[in-house]
Amino acid sequence: MDAKSKTVLIVEDNELNMKLFHDLLDAHGYNILQTKDGMEALDIAREHRPDLILMDIQLPEVSGLEVTKWLKEDDTLKAIPVVAVTAFAMKGDEEVIRQGGCEAYISKPISVTSFLDTVRRFIG
């Protein structure tokens, strides 16, 4: 597959959803880093510099929006696109998430096809 060299960091606290995203991206040849912890996500991002971050918004300790804010404040990390993948689908949620610094928004439940399209849009 042509995307072999690209690495995606998945931040997701639900194990089944993590497995779904992992398997989908794995099947399409991406390298995958994963964590269910927002603080750890920041450390992994600093250490491995992924090409894309899929960010769940509701996380146990700190919210995905908070983690995104830290990422965007860090000059060495802010170029990494952050795509929010969230079950917050009420009106206004998308706006809040985009204002929080996320480059894109995918609502759960995902459609497999559009999920992969969105990922491809950022890292080919």
Binding site: N14, L16, L20, L24, F88, A89, S107, K108, P109, V112
Partner: peptide
């Protein structure tokens, strides 16, 4: 809405992967 969508994501997502025989 949030709590129902989270498990639905797995249900709809995995079943779609299976349908596509990915």
């Amino acid at each position: 809405s949030h709590e129902l969508r989270t498990p639905l994501n797995a249900i709809i997502g995995f079943s779609e992967v299976m349908m596509q025989e990915m």
